[in-house]
Structures are given as structure tokens and as C-alpha cells.
Write a protein that binds this DNA or RNA. Structure first.
Length: 557
RNA sequence: UGCCCGAUGGUGUAAUGGUAGCACAACAGACUCUGAAUCUGUUUGUCAUGGUUCGAGUCCAUGUCGGGCAACCA
């Protein structure tokens, strides 16, 4: 078993172990129940890995169920993207793809059972009055004047609600529980509302829709869910979840278990805020490579395995926490270090002229594709008199510990020659370096000196005439503070947007990259991991996204 | 001021009454044809106060701090 597949224990697994040992269940059934009103993000990935991971490890089943009980915000676009994302993450629900909307008829029957049992009533209060009667946490609520409406009248009104005789908000079906409960959710919650809205799956068949609290437990029960796992904010709903299932003649009573949702530094995670960024055009869409959405991470170049590994490492608890995004970055670096072919690419080019190298000569030098993986083989890289190097790799006046090119210093051109810097030319007006000069030692072909002398620095380069010009997108975090949600009075989370979250450059790439296909990942030596963009890369003219930079202990000091 | 939940190094997470461990991050060194990777080492922790116990991060009490709950959203 690979390290990444070894499950990390957590309190939910302990509950399941106990339930299995006690014989409460012979096997488990979980579910991932998204509402199709937005794209999935890395927080959902945590839930997906949890629920599907449990099913996998315990030889159980995990359903993919769309909780589509509110047509106003939902759309097939979201259904499709969610299906694609869960599958991309590497999970399979087999035949168990369900929609809450498929249970609407059944839910109405359960609602009528509740009415007949005197556990639900049709209320005529307006939304404003409803709120008024509910009271506040510190004060009990007041019973609705319609609380004791006769069963027959409730039944009749509910059926007419369904038949479309009333306007939105005119009536609502409520559970009859306890208006004095310290738990607001137990104060006769609404369970069915009138909503004349077009549903993406049921069309105009319905004009009443069940509320989450009524629907969710029934969906779970009907599907035979054993462990209904959700996030912490539903903890206060659990008494209602349990109460409801106790009132009705359902196939089973699943156990709701809550865990803490994922928070990431330098990131916002609410669907509302992500939608706002999309709508405002702050990002190019849900799959903008800077977004924490599954589609954004995919576009950026993250692999499913790296996201799964991240989810494995963060664990599952009930503690509200803030995970350092450095851990996510570590997970993708770790994978790509082992798998990504190395190439040379100059992101901020300046010309280097090897003054004693014959003009017009081109020789092919051998580069190792992946030092971590001998099977990756070697490739040929052209070398000539004029090259491009990184502007950062030359300093006219440099500190002592600067190992790259400075006048008089010898460095290695990776897989090329040892060269000694002899000077540079600068634009007389601006002082900007336009060309750097050096001489090479012909005896050092391939990068080693026969006399055994060592050089401290090795830099990457690309032959000027053979270089492939390409667009490279350098992404950085979208926000420049750890907690973008923390805003002062009157502020907005977008105040913390990082103005430099993307920088587009024209880079010089080694010619082998002309063969790169959309979705191919590479390590650009000394700079980072990159992927050819899935949408904008064309054959022979790739466009690269920087997934994550290499660690750089020099830049820090 | 009501109810529910939580609190272990900078961050995340283990330890289930018996040696506080792991990972990320940071720092230092070794190695290096990537200032990467790798290797070695270092710093930093049980929210507080009582109690139970031979023994408490763990159990109990009180307090403190943090989060959630007052959509006909999920």
C-alpha cells in the first residue's frame, strides 16, 4: 500500500469502528450531498475524500446526491461541473447518483403523514410575522395563531399549496415542535414553502419545495445512509434531524456527525464570495487558476493525487482551524519532484554572449530529464554563441555569497560549459543591462572541468536562435493577507486582493517544449513547476501556467 | 444576556488515565551540475485555577478565549 493510501484515523473512523464492532451496522453507507448552486472548492474536496474514502476503506458505499431542493439558485451547469470534479478527484459512485428532486413525491407523502399525526400545520403568518413570532435566542417564541388548525384543514391547504392555488409566501407548512425551545431550529421550523420557480430537473411540475431540514434527513433515510457527515454549522440542526426521523415511519435513522470545514490561509472559501469574484470579473471564471475551486486547481496544474494527499494530511476534527496553504503547495511539489520532466526556460530573459565561442556554431548537449527518475532518460539541447539567461542571474555588483554571474566569476551553464563573466553592456539612458558577456572554457563541455575545479553556481539558459517564445502566466496568491475574511468595520474582503496575483511574461523556452501538449507538466529548472494550459495551449505554441514556484532559500535571505 | 460546540509548538494533527509524537513552516549545517530535491540537527506546545488519582493533555468543577445558531438558503 502506498503511503498516500494509508488512512489517517480520526474521530469519525472511531465511531464507525465502534458501530461495526457493536453490530449496529454490518457495513456503511455515506454520501456527498452538494447543492448544485456553485462550483466545488477544495473544502468540498475534503468532504469528498472523507465520505468516499470511508466507503472505500470500509468496503461500503458512497452516494453522490444532489441536494436540489431550492430551484432559485441551482442550475445544470453546476450539476455537470460537480460530476466532472468528483470524478476527476478520482472517486466513483457507481450507480449511486441521486437527486433530492427524485424524492419529491415521497417527501410530500411524509409531510402528509406528519399533518395526519398532528405534527405539522399550515401557517398563514407572513414571513415578517413568522420571524416576529419565532423570538430571539434569549427569549422564547410565541405560538402561531394557526398552530392548532384542524388536521383536515391542514391537509386541504397543503394540497392546494401543491396545486398552485396560492402565491409564494402565502402559506408555509411547519413542523409542530416547541416554540419555547432554546434551540431556534426547534421553534416550529418551516418544512415546505411555496415557490413558483422553474426547477432544472423537474421543470414546472412543482410549486412547493421542501426545506433542507425536512428534506435532508429523509434523503439520508431513504438511501439507507448509516453515517450522515456534514460540517459544524449543522450541529444545532441535529436535534431537528433526529426529531423528524423519529416522527416518521422511515427505513432507518442515520447518525449525523459534524466535522470542521476547511479554511486556508490567503483564501476565501464561501461559495458566495467565490461567485462574487466571478461575477465582478476579478477572476476569469470559476476555473481561473487562482481560484480555490477544484476546476481552478485543475486548470492551475494541481493533480488529483496531490489534492487527495493534502486532504489526508489535514485530518478531520471538530476544531475550527486555519490550514497553511504551504501544506497544499508542499503536496504538489512532492509529487511533481518525483514525476515532472525537467526543462530549461528563461522567464525574464537577458542575452548572454559567449565571446570566444565560434559564431554560427550550434552543438547539441545532453540534458537529464529527471534526476529523481533515471527511466525518464535524456534529451538534446542546442548550445550556441548567443544565449538567454535569467536577468536575475547576473549582477554587476553583487554580494559575496552571490553564486551566479558577476564580472570575474565563473559559473556553470547547466549541461553546457563553465563560463567566466567578463562584463555587460547597458542602455546609456536607463542603465538597464542589455547584454552580458562571458568567455567559455572549451575543455568543460557538458559542465565538468578536467582539472576538477568546482564552481559554486549553476544557471539555466536557452540558445537564442533556437528558443521557443511562449506566454507564461506567473500566478501568486489571490489575497495578500492570511485571513481575507477578516475585514474592519465597513471593509470588504476584496480590499485584500493581491494586485499582483498574476503576471504574464514572454519567456524563452528550450525547443523541446514545442512538443508540449495541453496538460503536460514540467519543472522549469530553478524556477518552478508549470503546466501547459488546458484551454489556451496550441500545438507548437504552448501557454504555461505556473503551478507553484520551487522553494527558494536564497530569495528569503 | 439563551443554546450548542471547541481549545496540544508559528500552523495542522496524534497520544483514548502511564515517556507529549508526527507533518508543514522556520532556522542551522552537510551534500549538490537546480541556492531545488535529499540528509542531519535546532527552536517552539497541553488556555487558566481548583479537584479526583500513585499518576491527568486525557476525568470532574469553575472561569477565560474562540466558533456556530435568530432565510419561507443549504
Amino acid at each position: 500500500m502506498a503511503a498516500e493510501d494509508v488512512p489517517v484515523s480520526n474521530f469519525i473512523r472511531e465511531i464507525i469502528d465502534r458501530d461495526l464492532a457493536d453490530g449496529k451496522h454490518a457495513s456503511i453507507v455515506t454520501r456527498f450531498p452538494p447543492e448544485p448552486n456553485g462550483y466545488l472548492h477544495i473544502g468540498h474536496a475534503k468532504s469528498i475524500c472523507l465520505n468516499f474514502g470511508l466507503a472505500r476503506d470500509y468496503n461500503g458505499q458512497c452516494n453522490l446526491r444532489f441536494d436540489d431542493t431550492n430551484p432559485s439558485a441551482e442550475d445544470v451547469e453546476y450539476v455537470d461541473s460537480i460530476i466532472e470534479d468528483v470524478r476527476w478527484l478520482g472517486f466513483d459512485w457507481g450507480k449511486n447518483l441521486f437527486f433530492a428532486s427524485d424524492y419529491f413525491e415521497q417527501m410530500v407523502a411524509y409531510a402528509e403523514d406528519m399533518i395526519r399525526n398532528g405534527k405539522a400545520y399550515v401557517c398563514t403568518l407572513t414571513p415578517e410575522e413568522f420571524k416576529e413570532y419565532r423570538g430571539v435566542p434569549t427569549r422564547p417564541g410565541l405560538p402561531s395563531p394557526w398552530r392548532d388548525r384542524p388536521v383536515e384543514e391542514n391537509l386541504d391547504l397543503f394540497r392546494r399549496m401543491r396545486a398552485g392555488e396560492f402565491a409564494d409566501g402565502q402559506y408555509v407548512l411547519r413542523a409542530k415542535i416547541d416554540m419555547a425551545s432554546p434551540n431556534l431550529h426547534m421553534r416550529d421550523p418551516a418544512i415546505y414553502r411555496i415557490k413558483h420557480a422553474h426547477h432544472h430537473r423537474t421543470g414546472d411540475r412543482w410549486c412547493i419545495y421542501p426545506m433542507y431540514d425536512f428534506a435532508h434527513g429523509l434523503e439520508d433515510a431513504v438511501e439507507g445512509i448509516t453515517h450522515s457527515i456534514c460540517t459544524l454549522e449543522f450541529e444545532v440542526h441535529r436535534p431537528l434531524y433526529d426529531w423528524l426521523l423519529d416522527q416518521l415511519d422511515v427505513p432507518c435513522h442515520p447518525q449525523q456527525i459534524e466535522f470542521a470545514r476547511l479554511n486556508l490561509t490567503y483564501t476565501v472559501m464561501s461559495k458566495r464570495k467565490l461567485l462574487e469574484l466571478v461575477r465582478a470579473g476579478t477572476v476569469s471564471g470559476w476555473d481561473d487558476p487562482r481560484m480555490p475551486t477544484v476546476s481552478g486547481l485543475r486548470r492551475r496544474g494541481y493533480t488529483p493525487a496531490s489534492i487527495r494527499e493534502f486532504c489526508r494530511r489535514i485530518g478531520v476534527t471538530k476544531t475550527d482551524s486555519l490550514t497553511d496553504i504551504a501544506l497544499l503547495e508542499h503536496c504538489i511539489r512532492e509529487e511533481l519532484n518525483a514525476t515532472a520532466p525537467r526543462v530549461m526556460a528563461v522567464l525574464d530573459p537577458v542575452k548572454l554572449v559567449v565571446t570566444n565561442y565560434p559564431e554560427g556554431q550550434v552543438e547539441m548537449l545532453e540534458g537529464v530529464n529527471n534526476p529523481e527518475d533515471p527511466a525518464a532518460g535524456v534529451r538534446q539541447v542546442p548550445f550556441s554563441r548567443e544565449l538567454y539567461i535569467e536577468r536575475d542571474d547576473f549582477m554587476e555588483e553583487a554580494p559575496n555569497k552571490y553564486f551566479r554571474l558577476k564580472p570575474g566569476q565563473e559559473v556553470r551553464l547547466r549541461y553546457g560549459y563553465l563560463v567566466t563573466c567578463t562584463g555587460c553592456r547597458k542602455d546609456s539612458a536607463t542603465g538597464v543591462v542589455t547584454e552580458v558577456y562571458c568567455t567559455y572554457d572549451p575543455a568543460t563541455r557538458g559542465g565538468n572541468a578536467p582539472d576538477g575545479r568546482k564552481v559554486k553556481g549553476t544557471i539555466h539558459w536557452v540558445a537564442a536562435a533556437q528558443a521557443l517564445d511562449a506566454e507564461v502566466r506567473l500566478f501568486d496568491r489571490l489575497f495578500n493577507v492570511e485571513r481575507p475574511d477578516d475585514v474592519p468595520e465597513g471593509g470588504h474582503f476584496t480590499d485584500h486582493l493581491n494586485p499582483d496575483s498574476v503576471k504574464i511574461v514572454r519567456a524563452k523556452l528550450e525547443p523541446s517544449l514545442a512538443q508540449a501538449l495541453a496538460g503536460d507538466r514540467f519543472q522549469f529548472e530553478r524556477t518552478g513547476y508549470f503546466m501547459a494550459d488546458a484551454k489556451d495551449s496550441k500545438p507548437r505554441t504552448p501557454v504555461f501556467n505556473r503551478i507553484v514556484p520551487l522553494r527558494d532559500s536564497w530569495a528569503k535571505s
